[in-house]
Every structure is written in structure tokens, then in C-alpha cells.
Simulated assay, not measured.
Amino acid sequence: MSRFPVPTRVALADDHAIVLEGLKLVLSGIGNLVMAGEAADGAQLLALLQRERVDLLVMDLGMPGVDGLAFVQRLRALHPALRILVLTGNAGAGMGHAAIAAGANGYLIKSGDIGELVPALMALSEGRNVIAAGGAETATADALAALTRREQQILMLIARGATAGDIAAQLGISPLTARKHRENLMRKLDLHNTAEVVAYAARQGIPLD
């Protein structure tokens, strides 16, 4: 039977009750692993981490009140010692590395092998980072090439912190058109917020200043 070398407190965060129950079932037989609590949204998770000592956190990015990787950045700032494992249904290219860049320590895909979970948590407890194969960098060059020239311009501007108004002014287009281009490029690259755009741009070597 698997066993952590020292008592370790784990918290689970997912808005699907069946996922939480499944995770608890998988982790229930692990020696020295103690359940510290569970949460179904961002507010509950923040309250839980404020109230309880948590060593490891398994969290979904799609919960209510969780704005993707920006929430991970917030957790990292609030709880520097917390080891965070993102467990998500999003297998987009480069998302694993983006999660690590945002402050997570591990990234697993819900459609992956359940047998990866415990080894991943043990790796995190030992100070190592883990990325599932599906979350690794794949086909990023093709994805970037699929953007139109205008979308590539806007990607660079977003990565530099430009708002829709800034982009509209610099490119001579309306703010509405700028927002539409932003939506299109984020959909093509499977990105969900500005933090993920910035992380993507950095990985692609796009200048951020």
C-alpha cells in the first residue's frame, strides 16, 4: 500500500460531487494522508485554506469563482508553501506548462489514468513538479501559425498589458473589433484569460516589453 513518509494534509476542490467522492475513495487508503477538507467553489476554497493547515491541494480550474490560472497565481501569493495539483478537463496544448508558470506544482488531466494521481501527489510532497503527457507543449507552432496577422498583433499587445481600448487606438480599429479578435485568438490557442495569454507569449519567445 502507498504511504507518505510523514503525515500530509490534502484538500480537494471540485464543483462536481461525484468527482470529489471518487478522489476521496482513491486517496482513502493512502497511509499518512489526512483529508483536510473539500470545497466546491473559489470562495469555499479560500475559506478552507484560511481555516485549515493544508499541505497538498487538488483543484479544478472550472469551479465557480475560479478565473483559471489567475486564481492559481492568487493562491500562490497567499499560501507560498502550498503544493498545488491542478486536475482539469482542459487538455489544451501548453496548458500544463502554463499552470506551472502560474504557480501550480502539478497538472493532470481528468481523462487520464487515475493511477497517476497518488504518484503525482507524492512527487509534489517531495518538492518535484509533475505535468501529465496531455498537458505538455504540443502543436504550439501550428496553433500560432493559425492566427491571422491581426490576431498575432493583438496577441503581442495583450501580452504587453494592452487593454481593448489601447489595442483599438494603436491599430486604428474599434474596441468591439479588438475584443472580437481577442476572443478569436484565445479560442484558437485554447487560452482563457490574460494570465494564460501572457504565459503563452512568454513560452513562444514573444517580447513582453
Results as ranks from 00 to 15, higher is better:
residue 126 E to W: 07
residue 124 L to Q: 07
residue 138 T to E: 03
residue 110 K to R: 09
residue 138 T to G: 04
residue 125 S to G: 06
residue 101 A to S: 05
residue 111 S to H: 08
residue 112 G to W: 06
residue 105 N to T: 08
residue 128 R to W: 13
residue 132 A to G: 14
residue 147 L to R: 09
residue 110 K to S: 02
residue 116 E to G: 09
residue 122 M to G: 02
residue 99 A to Q: 05
residue 123 A to M: 10
residue 113 D to S: 15
residue 134 G to P: 05
residue 105 N to M: 11
residue 101 A to Y: 00
residue 127 G to R: 12
residue 134 G to Q: 11
residue 135 G to M: 02
residue 137 E to D: 08
residue 144 L to N: 11
residue 111 S to D: 10
residue 104 A to E: 04
residue 112 G to I: 02
residue 112 G to P: 04
residue 132 A to T: 07
residue 116 E to D: 14
residue 150 R to P: 05
residue 112 G to T: 04
residue 105 N to W: 11
residue 151 E to V: 10
residue 134 G to R: 12
residue 112 G to F: 05
residue 121 L to D: 04
residue 147 L to I: 07
residue 141 A to L: 13
residue 131 I to V: 15
residue 141 A to K: 13
residue 150 R to K: 13
residue 104 A to Q: 05
residue 132 A to L: 07
residue 130 V to H: 01
residue 118 V to H: 13
residue 107 Y to N: 14
residue 107 Y to A: 12
residue 114 I to C: 14
residue 123 A to D: 13
residue 128 R to C: 11
residue 100 I to A: 03
residue 134 G to M: 10
residue 146 A to R: 15
residue 125 S to M: 05
residue 133 A to S: 07
residue 119 P to L: 08
residue 128 R to S: 14
residue 110 K to A: 04
residue 130 V to R: 00
residue 119 P to G: 10
residue 150 R to H: 06
residue 151 E to Q: 15
